[in-house]
């Protein structure tokens, strides 16, 4: 499938996604600043179409609601909501930094390699999108005691998975997150994820039992040098 995941924004706003797809797209939305910047205008547009259907409700409804409100406790999420927003606000610069790092990596790779690298990145992004939007995409979430979590969206038909680490805290500059696949007790590196929140494609998940994340010295390690901070079964 070559569909760009951005094209799910319009069906998302119209509530025209299957529940699974809605979850996957919301995970993507948390990562995609471009999508979020378009969401507001689209949602306002859709709600105006909806608002134009006005019809007077039965008068009893108001009385019933007022009575229910009088006996229904309200969520007290002011603290939570603000905490979530500030978490997001803190995460955004890190995501931007990660994106800038990718761009920098491509540009300092030199003139000769540049196009090849850019093509590789584009191919990787296309495959991520294919996994995220595949019909057999399944999601699992693993959270550590420290509050970090990764989402794993795996697609058997693509023999690949996308690991989304939105809440990974930023590491010191001499450390990286490294991803491992566990297969019959053997641990194999699936690549270095970077120093903060990010997304990563894992190719070849057939026979893989679990994914694990460790903190490693800059550049990554051949075998894990510390206990996993997270592990998720596939």
């Amino acid at each position: 499938m070559t569909t760009d995941i951005h094209h799910l924004l319009a069906p998302y706003v119209l509530d025209a996604l299957e529940p699974d797809e809605r979850n996957v797209f919301e995970a993507h939305l948390a990562q995609c600043e471009l999508c979020r910047s378009e969401l507001g205008g689209f949602a306002e547009t859709a709600s105006r179409i909806g608002g134009a259907q006005a019809e007077t409700p039965p008068p009893e409804l108001r009385d019933r609601l007022m009575a229910m409100a009088a006996t229904t406790p309200q969520e007290r999420p002011v603290v939570t909501a603000m905490a979530q927003r500030s978490r997001l606000r803190r995460a955004l610069p890190r995501i931007a930094v990660a994106a800038a790092a990718v761009v920098a990596a491509v540009s300092i790779a030199g003139f000769v390699n540049e196009h090849q690298k850019a093509d590789d990145l584009r191919a990787e992004r296309d495959e991520m999108v294919a996994v995220l939007t595949s019909s057999d995409a399944a999601m699992s979430v693993d959270a550590s005691t420290g509050g970090a979590s990764v989402r794993v969206i795996s697609s058997p038909s693509h023999d690949a998975a996308v690991v989304v680490g939105t809440s990974l805290r930023a590491l010191r500059s001499d450390q990286v997150y490294q991803l491992w696949t566990v297969h019959d007790g053997r641990t194999t590196s699936a690549g270095v994820m970077g120093r903060g929140p990010g997304m990563m494609l894992v190719d070849g998940i057939k026979g893989v039992d679990a994914l694990a994340v460790t903190v490693e010295p800059k550049g990554g390690s051949k075998t894990p040098t510390s206990d996993p901070i997270l592990s998720a079964s596939i």
């Binding site: 609601l65 229910m68 409100a69 229904t72 309200q74 969520e75």
Partner: peptide, 13 residues
């Protein structure tokens, strides 16, 4: 009715 009850409960969001 469900919508307005949800509005009442989650207005702080």
């Amino acid at each position: 009715q469900e919508v307005f009850l949800q509005v009442w409960q989650t207005a702080a969001r």
